[in-house]
Structure formats: structure tokens, C-alpha cells
Simulated scan of single mutants.
Amino acid sequence: MLQFINKAGDTSAVSVSVMGERDEVRPTFVLDRGVYDAPTERVYPGTPESILSFDSTRYAPNRLGLAAWAFSKENPLTARVFVNQLWAMVFGRGLVGTVADFGNQGELPSHPELLDWLAADFRDSGWDVKRLIRQLVLSATYRQSSRVTKKHLAEDPENVYLSRAKRIRLPAEFIRDLALASSGLLNREIGGPSIKPYQPDGIWEVTSSGRGTLANYVQDHGTDLYRRGMYVFIKLTVPPPNMLIFDASNRDMCEVTRQRTNTPLQALVMLNDPVILEASRVLAGQLLQTAPDAAARDLIMHAFRRILSRDAGEKELTLLESYYADELQRYRESPADAAAFVDVGEAPHKKTGNVARQAALMAVIHGLYNLEETITRT
């Protein structure tokens, strides 16, 4: 225990618990049928001999020794497990299909030599995660088309042998980042405290005891609203609903891999999430302010390229131009609807001089964000 004196001048001591090693090792026993007061055989710190012997002359019998053992150059497991998890994240399936189970109940690797090489290279490069991800995403295997042919279905229906790319919906945090980055709203600051973005009223309050600093949800403002999804604050069992619907964890338990579902609620989130609507409004205003006299076709082409990272086809442009024209006519006939539509989010409004035009372009961009291709890696 450590003791501190209150800065306000209060001389009473405040005790704070800290973690540390005990002076003596507390004995641990196998419990008879798990009964806490029925100890049987005493057990000692150790690791599976089949992986790597826990040499007491090299590794101290404590947490530090266990960490040194796990990252030892002779340990064949740690690098393989981590490489396999990153491979599954990038390719949709691990080289060992059971990502959470490398034991004797798990699957054998589909490409054992590749897994060995990647693990050894990752270890020898100083456990450089960024380097490993770059290796994977720049590979010819990753850059394959996801188009499925009859030959694929006949010879590799589950894509175990990586005959094609796998279509993977982006994780919840990435969907937020995609909208913010493509609209120019993303705050690229690295590190710092978590942030609380837009959230429906009352969600925290109905699950709270009514006490403490987290009893009520206090939304952040300014540039903090536009930080990456990884910095969004998650209260245990009450994650942001827009992320929960896209299969983010509620932190009830440790999850090695997330589920990937496809539900109507996800479409409702993309249609109504303030982040998506605000990104659409900001990008429309930015395009109109930058090129106020540009033709609708040029504006749509630019937005399409920023959101989907490719050029639109002629058929796609024709369809989007037609939709833009219909929306422009509707908003010109109802200026109040146009003003209400663009009145979303806290980001400053760009002065475009034509609310109906901005609302129509915003509707087109909103439609682009709602394409399956936008939130699916193909």
C-alpha cells in the first residue's frame, strides 16, 4: 500500500493499492473437484515442455520470467499465434483456421511452411507489427480479385488455398474512420484520452446505478468528435450502439475474433448515423466551396473517387446524375426540407451559397456511403 497526502491541505492519509511481488511464494494446490478448502497436490510455476522448457536458470518464476519465456527466440508459439491473428484480420481466415485454438483441438495449418517463415521473419525483425502488415497487404495474394469462378467453387470452395481474395466487411471502427477520412473530418492525432462521440440519449442512464462519473453520458465537442474509432470510449456492457450493431465487442469477455453478421439494423445505422450524415454534408460543402461552378457530374466523380477509391463507370455516373437532378428539384421546391437535411453535426458549415444544391449533392454522397462496396473490402 502507498499513502498520499491530499493536495487540498487535508493531512489525512489516502491508501492506494498497488501490484507487486510478494516476499514469499504463496503455495498453490490442485483443489479436489474445485472445492476451495480441499487442497490436494501442490503445483509449481511451469510451462508446457512440448513448447519450450521453462529453464529456472534463465527465467525467474514470476510474471517477468513468463514474459521472457513467451518472447524467447526458441519459443515456437508466440510469433506463430500473433502472425496467424494478423493474417486472419487481413485475409478473413487464418493459416490456422481456428485462430483462438492452437492446441490439439485446433486445425492444422493450411500453409505450414509459410506460417513458419512469417513467424520467424516477424520475430527476427524485432516484432515489427507495421512491417508485417505491410508485407501482407502488398502481397500478390492480398491484391487478387474477389470474383468467384466455377473453378474456384469446384477446387477451393472455402478459399483455404487463397485462390481469390475474400470479401470482408470493415470492422465497426474502420467504418467510422472511412467516413471521417473521406470527408476530411478525421482528426489524425495519435494517442491521448478516449472520446465520447454522438450517441442516442438515455442509453447509459438506464444501465447505470446513478452514481459516479459515468452515471451520465457527457458528449465531447470540437475536434475530439472526429478522432479515430479506436479512441471511442466504451463503457463495460454499453458500447456505442452504432459499433455494437457492426459486431464490436461489448467487453463482457475476451474475444480473439469478432463475428461478422449482416443484419437490417446495419443498413439503418448507415442511413441514420449522425457521423455518416455529417460526413456527407461536410464533403458536399467542401466540394461546392472548392469548385462552385463545376458540373454535377464532375462533383459526383470526385466524391465517388474519394469514397470508393476508384473511378465511377459510365452507367454509375448516369444513375447518380439522375438521382442528383431529382433531389435538386425536390429541394428547390422545398427549401425548408433542404435546410433541415443539411442541419446535422457540429462541424462548421461551408458557405456554398446554394442550400438546395448542397442538399442534393449531400444526398448523392450519402448514397455512396451506403453502398455495400463502400464498407466491404473486395
Score class of each variant (00 low, 15 high):
residue 1 M to W: 07
residue 2 L to H: 10
residue 4 F to G: 00
residue 4 F to L: 15
residue 13 A to S: 12
residue 23 D to G: 08
residue 25 V to C: 02
residue 26 R to D: 03
residue 26 R to I: 03
residue 33 R to V: 11
residue 38 A to K: 09
residue 45 P to H: 07
residue 53 S to T: 07
residue 56 S to P: 15
residue 56 S to L: 11
residue 66 L to M: 12
residue 67 A to S: 10
residue 72 S to H: 12
residue 82 F to A: 15
residue 89 M to R: 15
residue 94 G to T: 03
residue 98 T to V: 00
residue 100 A to G: 06
residue 108 L to R: 13
residue 113 E to A: 14
residue 114 L to F: 05
residue 114 L to M: 10
residue 115 L to R: 03
residue 116 D to E: 14
residue 119 A to G: 05
residue 120 A to Q: 15
residue 122 F to D: 05
residue 123 R to E: 09
residue 123 R to Y: 08
residue 132 L to T: 03
residue 135 Q to A: 10
residue 144 Q to C: 01
residue 148 V to L: 01
residue 155 E to T: 09
residue 162 L to H: 10
residue 165 A to N: 04
residue 168 I to N: 00
residue 184 G to K: 03
residue 186 L to M: 14
residue 186 L to G: 07
residue 188 R to I: 03
residue 191 G to W: 07
residue 197 P to Q: 04
residue 198 Y to P: 05
residue 198 Y to K: 01
residue 201 D to E: 06
residue 207 T to L: 08
residue 216 N to E: 11
residue 217 Y to I: 11
residue 219 Q to R: 15
residue 220 D to T: 06
residue 225 L to N: 10
residue 236 L to Y: 09
residue 245 I to D: 00
residue 247 D to N: 15
residue 253 M to W: 03
residue 253 M to A: 12
residue 254 C to G: 00
residue 256 V to L: 05
residue 258 R to Q: 11
residue 263 T to Q: 04
residue 265 L to M: 09
residue 269 V to L: 08
residue 270 M to A: 13
residue 287 L to M: 06
residue 289 Q to V: 06
residue 298 D to L: 02
residue 301 M to G: 08
residue 301 M to K: 15
residue 302 H to C: 09
residue 313 G to K: 13
residue 313 G to F: 00
residue 315 K to W: 01
residue 324 Y to D: 08
residue 329 Q to I: 05
residue 335 P to F: 13
residue 335 P to A: 13
residue 341 F to D: 02
residue 343 D to L: 14
residue 349 H to D: 09
residue 355 V to N: 03
residue 355 V to F: 03
residue 357 R to F: 06
residue 359 A to L: 05
residue 360 A to F: 06
residue 361 L to Y: 07
residue 371 L to N: 10
residue 375 I to H: 09
